[in-house]
Write a protein that binds this DNA or RNA. Structure first.
Lengths: 201, 201
DNA sequence: AAAAATATTGAACACTGTTCAATTCAGTGT
DNA sequence: ACACTGAATTGAACAGTGTTCAATATTTTT
């Protein structure tokens, strides 16, 4: 049944990504299988392997899309709600948006970190650019507060890794040890305290 | 070949845990399989399932041991090097020890977070106690600095989630975007800035 | 209409977690 | 010494997995 739907390679790739995304969203990373994706778009495994090198590269592409959506979400969050507010407000807005996104798309967001490269080699360039892209929001908010550009980069990374840590531990239920403080409250506390420490340097 | 080595259930369980740990350390979470563990201790799959409910519960037990070792490691780190130093020094020592442990046992440490409970239910009690145990070190260091006990708990969780975030992003190579700042330097910066912000409240 | 080129299939391989009837054996009773 | 019993252990079976690639189906070119 060749060329059945006259879909190009790119079209098949996108259909596969759509289907795979839906599967992960519904059944999680573990529920994702080549045959399931292929069946969902009306093809068989073989075709899928014609369009993706392997399972890992499919996962990486889905993750790329997740990063794109996250970037979009952060953008609208800071542009709509509190335009041109101070750094603290902006950063808190960003953190809420980040955490909100992670909670809304938990399985896809989890997959962002379940994927691991073979020991020794790094993430592909296009993926690292997307990561930087997401990061740029934090840097922009922090720049007015920290003079030096290199220092801005460092502070942004440290602070955002911190917010990410809160987010990931909450979502994976490693932080429910005591009084039910929400992850957003925790992130707010981190940001406020960190910024105060930064100002009083 | 029944009762071949006259091992009790508990002994078999421990042998299995030792073997599984070695496999994960060498080949990662993905390399762990029931048949491999069984073969390594001279039994077959069936016996393994007599001693562990399923793969997940085996993983959870390995994780328990990893937490125990982590706890030990943190203890020796603060008791030997800098006994009775100020909070900042202690926390930095703890962070270095935490990160060092994660880097020394990367696959086992990763598995700590790759394991996920079925959606809806929580970690078993014995596991949560181990988590609290590890946390207690951070709380102890932070207590003199923060008056209120509830506030101490909050600050400890926020700060440690931050350190964990740095650690996890570095190990999973999501933070190599720019000038090669080490994860330990980043954690130090986080701790110093956070503590300054905490003091100048 | 025949030939060439390309798209698609699906069986095959070596693996996975999990179950459970069948087998093998240690200890006891005779 | 021998059968019996009950527990320990096995390993085949099931339904799935990622991945490959000769074979087939279809379109395009000649």
């Amino acid at each position: 049944m060749a060329r059945r739907g006259k879909y190009s390679r790119d079209e098949i790739r996108n259909m596969a990504l759509d289907a795979a995304e839906a599967i992960v969203a519904a059944e999680g990373y573990a529920g994702l299988s080549a045959r399931k994706v292929a069946a969902a778009i009306g093809y068989t495994v073989g075709t899928l392997y014609l369009v993706f090198e392997n399972r890992n590269s499919l996962v990486l592409r889905i993750n790329g899309r997740t990063l794109d959506r996250l970037h979009e979400h952060l953008m609208t969050a800071i542009s709509s709600a509190s335009a041109k507010k101070d750094a603290e407000t902006t950063l808190i807005t960003l953190a809420r948006a980040y955490i909100g996104h992670a909670e809304r798309e938990t399985p896809l967001w989890n997959m962002l970190f379940e994927y691991t490269t073979a020991q020794g080699d790094v993430m592909p360039d296009w993926y690292r650019r997307k990561l930087e892209h997401v990061f740029s929001h934090v840097e922009a908010a922090l720049r007015p507060l920290v003079g030096d550009e290199a220092e801005t980069g460092r502070a942004a990374r440290v602070l955002w890794a911190g917010v990410h840590g809160i987010c990931t531990l909450k979502i994976r239920q490693r932080l429910d040890l005591s009084g039910g403080q929400s992850d957003e409250e925790m992130a707010t506390m981190l940001i406020k305290t960190f910024l105060r420490g930064l100002r009083d340097r």
